[in-house]
Structure formats: structure tokens, C-alpha cells
């Protein structure tokens, strides 16, 4: 098992380098650059100012040199400074991380708490009204654009509070850490967490249901049934454990992708998180910041996958880890 984990960690190296090369290339394929973005405030860009800006940001160096310095920096955990703000990239990211993580964790909790019991129930009561209702709720969750849901939810909160009290209310738009002001913090995080969590739980619920259905038809479950094992025991010990395999994959993948899902939600609620930072960095063509952010997501992704694969091996003895 240790060897497996060490192996997998070593395998992460080519993934990281590959991702580094890809993001480096992609960013430079985007026409224009950060200096054009920065200097275009009045509608035209002064040519001298542009040249000065290029020199200032080291963009007059050769592409290969830029790539090597990026890789070298990454290997030594020196991510450089944001080309846009001039602040260290680590500072830019760490400032945004708490709110994004908070919402990701809250959304995951919401998702798991709703999805696994309801998904299992839905499978056990296949083709009954319970099943239909649960599936409808789940599918509606997948079908609704989360930003639209967020916009509508926000407007409903505003309109309802306006109608009830005469003064419209909306969640705070500036972040306060949980330990400083828990009420303010949570009143900010709860709506986005529910919006994201609804979709997330819907996806997970469907996967739980279909995996459960699959497992319930497996021979060994029927054997268990034939042996006269208690229904609950069959579900918990055999069916759920095996059905969880794809569910765990999905939760893992979805968590790693939550950052991506947050991109749009953070815009709707004006959350100063990683997702919004990502969009800003790409649109500002801030190479260093985008590169660091991609590498962060890749690292999270690699780790999540490792954890998922280990769980796989543990949950399904049919898979060998070699």
C-alpha cells in the first residue's frame, strides 16, 4: 500500500509538469497581454507606455526563459508576484482561499447529507412515488443553471424582505472571517453554499441511486437475500458499500471541480474567492497568477484522485493496486 502511494505521488510529477506546460502555452496563445489591458482605460494605449510596461514585467525575455523560471520557481515554492497587482501570488491566493473553501466545504456537507440517504431511498423504492419525487428534485437541480438560481434567490430575498419590512435586505458583500463575526460570515456564505450544494447534491443523488440499483441486481446481493440476511444489513454491509464506489469518485471529482463551479457563483454574490480571482487573472492576462492558480487546482486534483483511488482499492477488493 505504501509503495502504491509513493508510486502515485511520483506519477503526479508528469501531471504537474504537463499542466504547467499547458497553462503556460494557453496563456501565451491568448492575443494581447496584460499591459494592453492595464493601459486601455481611456480607449487607446500609449506606445511608449506599453514598451515600458513590457520591460517592467520581464515580458521582453525569451519564452523559454520565462517557462524555465516559472518551473524553477514552482519547484522551490516561489510563485512570484502577480503581474496585475504586484503582490506576491501566494498572498493573492491565500487572501481568497478562506471564503472559497468555506463554501466548498459547506456545499459538500449539504450535498452528502442530502444525496446519500435520498439516493439510497430512491433506489430501494424504485418506480414508486417516493422515487419519482426524489428524482424530479434531483434532476431539477442538475437542470437549473446555478447562476440563474443564485440571481433569482437573491432577488427573492430582496423582494421578500422589502415586502415584509419595507427595507430590502441582502447578504453582506464583504468578507469577515468566521471567528471574527460568525453571524455575518454565515449569512454571507449560506446562500451561495445552498445554490452550489443543491446542484452538487443532485448530481451525487443520481449517482447514488443508479449505482445502488446496479448493485442491488448483482448476484451476490441476491445470494445474500436468498441466504435470508436482514434487509438493512444487506443494504448497509453489501449494497451501499459497493455502490459508494462510483459515488466516492464523483464526490472527489466534483470537489476538485468545485473551484470551477464557484467561478460563476462567486460573481453572482460578489464573493472575493478563488473562482473570481481565476476569471480576473485570465481576463487580465496575468500569467504568473493564472499559472499558480492552475497549479494549485492541479495539485488539489492530484491529491483528491489519490485519495479516491485509495478508497477504491479499499472499497472494492476486485481492484488490485499494482
Amino acid at each position: 500500500m505504501y509503495r502504491y502511494i509513493v508510486n502515485r505521488l511520483l506519477l503526479a510529477v508528469p501531471t504537474l509538469v504537463g499542466a504547467a506546460a499547458l497553462v503556460f502555452l494557453l496563456m501565451r496563445l491568448i492575443p494581447g497581454d496584460i499591459c494592453l489591458v492595464r493601459l486601455s482605460g481611456g480607449g487607446s494605449v500609449d506606445a511608449d507606455a506599453l514598451a515600458a510596461c513590457h520591460a517592467d514585467l520581464g515580458m521582453d525575455r525569451s519564452v523559454l526563459l520565462q517557462f524555465l523560471s516559472f518551473l524553477g520557481g514552482f519547484a522551490t515554492f516561489d510563485f512570484g508576484t502577480s503581474m496585475w497587482s504586484g503582490k506576491p501570488v501566494s498572498y493573492e491566493i491565500l487572501t481568497r482561499l478562506p471564503i472559497s473553501l468555506e463554501i466548498a466545504v459547506l456545499a459538500t456537507v449539504v450535498a452528502i447529507a442530502i444525496a446519500i440517504p435520498l439516493g439510497t431511498l430512491s433506489a430501494l423504492r424504485q418506480n414508486t412515488w417516493t422515487d419519482f419525487v426524489i428524482r424530479t428534485v434531483a434532476i431539477a437541480g442538475i437542470a437549473t443553471p446555478s447562476f440563474w438560481l443564485g440571481i433569482i434567490a437573491l432577488i427573492i430575498v430582496l423582494d421578500v424582505t422589502s415586502a415584509v419590512s419595507g427595507t430590502p435586505w441582502m447578504p453582506p458583500i464583504d468578507y469577515v472571517p468566521l471567528w471574527q463575526d460568525p453571524v455575518r460570515n454565515l449569512s454571507m456564505a449560506i446562500l451561495p453554499a445552498l445554490t452550489v450544494g443543491y446542484r452538487y447534491s443532485a448530481v451525487t443523488m443520481r449517482m447514488t441511486r443508479s449505482a445502488m440499483l446496479e448493485v442491488l441486481r448483482e448476484d451476490y446481493i441476491r445470494t445474500a437475500r436468498a441466504k435470508g440476511l436482514v434487509h438493512r444489513l444487506i443494504i448497509n454491509r453489501h449494497a451501499l458499500k459497493n455502490a459508494l464506489l462510483p459515488v466516492v469518485t464523483l464526490i472527489g471529482i466534483e470537489f476538485a471541480f468545485l473551484i470551477g463551479g464557484l467561478v460563476v457563483t462567486e460573481q453572482v454574490f460578489n464573493l472575493n474567492g478563488i473562482g473570481r480571482l481565476f476569471v480576473q487573472a485570465v481576463q487580465n492576462q496575468d500569467y504568473t497568477l493564472t499559472q499558480a492558480l492552475v497549479m494549485l487546482v492541479v495539485a488539489v486534483f492530484v491529491l483528491t484522485n489519490l485519495v479516491v483511488d485509495i478508497l477504491y482499492a479499499w472499497l472494492d477488493p476486485r481492484i488490485r493496486y499494482a
Binding site: 506519477l11 508528469p14 501531471t15 504537463g18 499542466a19 499547458l22 497553462v23 494557453l26 496563456m27 491568448i30 471529482i253 471541480f257 473551484i259 470551477g260 463551479g261 467561478v263 460563476v264 481565476f278 476569471v279 485570465v282 481576463q283 492552475v294 487546482v297 492541479v298 486534483f301 492530484v302 484522485n305
Partner: peptide, 20 residues
């Protein structure tokens, strides 16, 4: 490995870059 690299880019981020 190749898929890992591609997966590491969340859908929306990859899309942002492609459209840009």
C-alpha cells in the same frame, strides 16, 4: 496522465482560455 492534465482544468476555466 494526459487525461489528468486535461481534467485539472475545470471546464469553465478551459473554456475561458479557449474563448479568449
Amino acid at each position: 496522465r494526459v487525461l489528468d492534465v486535461m481534467m485539472a482544468f475545470p471546464l469553465i476555466i478551459m473554456a475561458l482560455a479557449v474563448v479568449a
